[in-house]
Design a protein around this nucleic acid. Sequence first.
DNA 1: CTGTTAGCGCATTCAG
DNA 2: CTGAATGCGCTAACAG
Lengths: 367, 367
Amino acid sequence: MLCSCTNRDNTSVFEGRDNAVTMQRRTGGDHRPTLEMVAAAAGVSRGTASRALNGGVNVSRKAMEAVERAAAELGYRPNLAARTLVLGRSESIGLVISETDERLFSDPYFARLTRGVHSELAGSGIQLVLTLAQNDQERRQLVRFAAGRHLDGVLLISHHRPDPLPLALEDAGIPVVVAGRPNGPECSTRSWWVDADNCGGARQAVEYLISKGRRNIATVAGTQDMSAGFDRLQGWKEAMRVAAGALPEDLIAFGDFSEGSGRRGAEELLARGRPIDAIFAASDLMAFGVLDTLHRRGLKVPEDIAVMGFDDMPGSERCDPPLTTVVQPIDEMGRILVRMLLQRLRGEEDAETSVIVPTGFVVRGSA
Amino acid sequence: MLCSCTNRDNTSVFEGRDNAVTMQRRTGGDHRPTLEMVAAAAGVSRGTASRALNGGVNVSRKAMEAVERAAAELGYRPNLAARTLVLGRSESIGLVISETDERLFSDPYFARLTRGVHSELAGSGIQLVLTLAQNDQERRQLVRFAAGRHLDGVLLISHHRPDPLPLALEDAGIPVVVAGRPNGPECSTRSWWVDADNCGGARQAVEYLISKGRRNIATVAGTQDMSAGFDRLQGWKEAMRVAAGALPEDLIAFGDFSEGSGRRGAEELLARGRPIDAIFAASDLMAFGVLDTLHRRGLKVPEDIAVMGFDDMPGSERCDPPLTTVVQPIDEMGRILVRMLLQRLRGEEDAETSVIVPTGFVVRGSA
DNA sequence: CTGTTAGCGCATTCAG
DNA sequence: CTGAATGCGCTAACAG
């Protein structure tokens, strides 16, 4: 059946095909205006035209205006490739996400970090280039792209360890700032980095539980080959060591940051028969699982067992009971990421090569 | 309190600062290997080295190996800026999202489209560059970036009309393919485009309702200055005109694609007192609102009133009752977007300048 | 203040 | 098959 809002043959009614630019052509044939042509039209030399278009130092008012008019009339667009070639920099930086696009769009972490990066870069004139690097092939292509001077520097978001990207980029001479404390084999990275104070945040969470009279505080830890998982467990250990003297190893269960693993972790802890009056989960997702298990066992939160999470992810304030959780200033981390990279690009010698930003926590109903 | 997992002064323990590359320096001083150096090391001329590194036509086996070895030893990385300058193309295309980053990460549409684009480009050697263009300043910068030959072409995702970007880019000589049928002032665009068959999808939805014996089919339409909103209403009109002879204007309510507007739209329709046995909402979000209103009025879905949505967004299968809705092949649209742009870049004259992809629908409980 | 000059690093002519 | 020469478009140093 014919649908009136479209043409029968599914092609548009416009006829602009003829001015489609053929990209195959090599030198010549392209009549895009060059600086040379602008200079000629303005009646000045290329040098003067260039100066006029770049800040206009040492250019007479008259020449300035002539060049600007000529550029506007010709629709002049500076060839950035030529500019990059002579300047040795492209004025653009990459935000590389070494992650599946699945998680990219589902994990609010990326959204907030990107927002922070983006806002810090606003008005700087530096172009932000987002890039996906999901497998070795793409990682190689990215290194080629960046090392080929298309990117002055790279912001790398990557939580999969070990990730060869930081080293590969640095080896290629590209300055990198990583979101996340390096651990594992790439500890030898020369990259700068910024991370949340996972350790301190976890410690504070446990200290808060202690201040509320809890004594037998268990934890469902995250993946230990990720610094976030390792550090959060570390924080729990520190606080517990201070509070309990010795380390209650049997109050630790290991998960993988997922809700299901939180569920299983809680079951495992309860099954050990040791008294427990609080559970600190290393992620909100795991905390959800913990809550589920406790509900199922008929245990009251926070009366019987208090629960704390980590991340303050969307939904944490609406679960039952609302989750008390550690918050990271992700936007701020994004902004710091940018500042550090720009410092590195400027060659500032006194800049910090790594930054740990403090976390806080929000108290809701669960603890 | 000291946290053992980090240094006291919050700086890393690594000492790689001295080999940080100073980006300020201009010509000279940088010892990154050039093709010239590779050629010298291999004992051949620049020309031969270049040929060897690019496919190796007209290069002896011996020279080939010598060049490859030299390149590997020196850690040679071709300067892509120089390459772009001489070739007139950068081998990279932009995926420009003219949208707030808020929506970018929350709307599953972007995720699926990006996935499609990304998958189609995999292995092509073409670099995908994601870019945000949220305001005029950023739009200008993007045009400069693309027109400066950093991007061979652009894929544009933009549902805000009117958007000056397609025209601005085409004027600057950058081929553009837009996701979404152009409407409004930029109808004069020379951009190619791809869109879902919103009109046909809506028509099929209504026809399905008719086939189920529904006769008084109302609609909550979407924003009319967006082609999706306009076309979906158009589809409803076409089907209703065929089924009812005349057009029942009083069965139309207007919303803005939001859940709240769906709620209000349904209330408005019911308040008119005309008999209604089905409601077609132009988006799932509005359908959720419609369901809410119907529930509140004590009306049974689908017994009293059938409901259909549009989009099949995550959550549609879990609402009460599960939503029967029109689905768009978004991933496929992403893939087509890429194919069209590549065709345009190759200057293929026989390529379609616009494509409309058929939609389908999933039947669940609500209709 | 201005025009001229010399490259940036590369792919591709064109003679050998 | 190879080397030498040319120019892509631009900026910055230089001498006027």
